[in-house]
Write a protein that binds this DNA or RNA. Sequence first.
DNA 1: CGCTTAGTTGATGTCACTCAACCCTAGTGG
DNA 2: CCACTAGGGTTGAGTGACATCAACTAAGCG
Lengths: 237, 237
Amino acid sequence: MPTSIVRKLRHGAPLSPADEAALTAAFADRLAVPAHQDLIREGDRPEFVHAVIEGLACRYKLTPDGRRQIIAWLVPGDFCDLHVAVLDRMDHSIATLVPSLIVSAPRSRVLELVATSPALSQALQWATLVDEAILREWIVGMGRRPADKQVAHLLCELAIRLSAVGQSIDGGVALPVTQLEIADTLGLSAVHVNRVLQRLRGEGMIPAGAALRVADIERLSAFAEFDPGYLHLDPRL
Amino acid sequence: MPTSIVRKLRHGAPLSPADEAALTAAFADRLAVPAHQDLIREGDRPEFVHAVIEGLACRYKLTPDGRRQIIAWLVPGDFCDLHVAVLDRMDHSIATLVPSLIVSAPRSRVLELVATSPALSQALQWATLVDEAILREWIVGMGRRPADKQVAHLLCELAIRLSAVGQSIDGGVALPVTQLEIADTLGLSAVHVNRVLQRLRGEGMIPAGAALRVADIERLSAFAEFDPGYLHLDPRL
DNA sequence: CGCTTAGTTGATGTCACTCAACCCTAGTGG
DNA sequence: CCACTAGGGTTGAGTGACATCAACTAAGCG
């Protein structure tokens, strides 16, 4: 049973069994973290590279007046701070959104992996480039999409990313997310997100019920004009 | 006289004279491109890595209804498509904004550089990570900053980035940019950008006159709450 | 000297925000 | 076993920032 890191990186490069073993061995250190807890703070210079294995986390920044902007969602398989070998210090913070399982490996160990395995090196590079592609797509959304399509687009993205690491249950994907977190991601107010979700539920885009779920991804994608190309996932997996 | 590529990458890693020579040699192919011309289109799989030497370019995407969202500004020294070795195809387009000088190197040649020089490898990695950090900061702006601070913030960023590659003239930086381009960057309308710029000029944040310039960066930074940390520039340069 | 592109101005409209209240559920402690 | 609390969700009223539309000016340019 591969961990979600392995499962994700397979999309970036074909990994040999040895690669996969080396990866899981490096990230041996496991830690259960409760919800709403900072993993890394802006300004830190972490000595370890972290990854989410189970649960959900986010990158975020706070503005001087205390408002929060979420900059990335970290689903199982995502790395928190791959850049730490190159950039001097964190320019944002990372926190869990729900109780999560976090693994970590010493920076040096990751550098070794990259040096010895070209496939792993490419896969990790791929991971950071996909992060960047997601940011670009978010900017398009924030700049040019109305709120309802923005919300639908985010739900599509999360559903696809979660199912790419095996988090879908009989065709549907559960999103254990508060409306405030969606609002802080899209630059909207929680009140407005609430009204948008009601409309989406009313039109049958997402199932009724308090718990947020994506069931009919086709329908939602069509409405959101969602094109998964920017996620650069391997269609064969 | 180093090219702007060299000048930029020095911020990412200490380059030996040999590194710098190898880099300029690889990007020997030069091309003058008129304004408003696509360099690379969404869906392309370019065989060459491009960089801007003089002028100004942008990454952008078009929405289904034909609106444009600019996703990045490429100033002299910036690379257009470093990711092309890892990602399958371009998920966005790149176009010049003003007449520009573009250099290019075959993909294979760049991979060689990375394989032979650890310093260059780190510098190029740094360049893509800085691109990512800039995207994160833009998202914060679009989500949580009002239009006037957003505009001011963008002007600060461009002024700093341009002076980091030696484009400042006696303390001021000229921004050869239309108001529509600013609008398409920040997700605003051109009309609104116009009114914001008038206010900024009125308050003395930027000099009066049709040509857009940044003169008093301190003043503008304070207003925009601009913190250059996310650009990860080497303060010694 | 007409044409085009960028910038400017005013009037009007609307999407999304803010504020404030209220509901519901789950958890907690007496 | 029930009152209390807290967090998330829901609702309504009022407001504001920014969009849209349309017209006009100024500055290149063939």
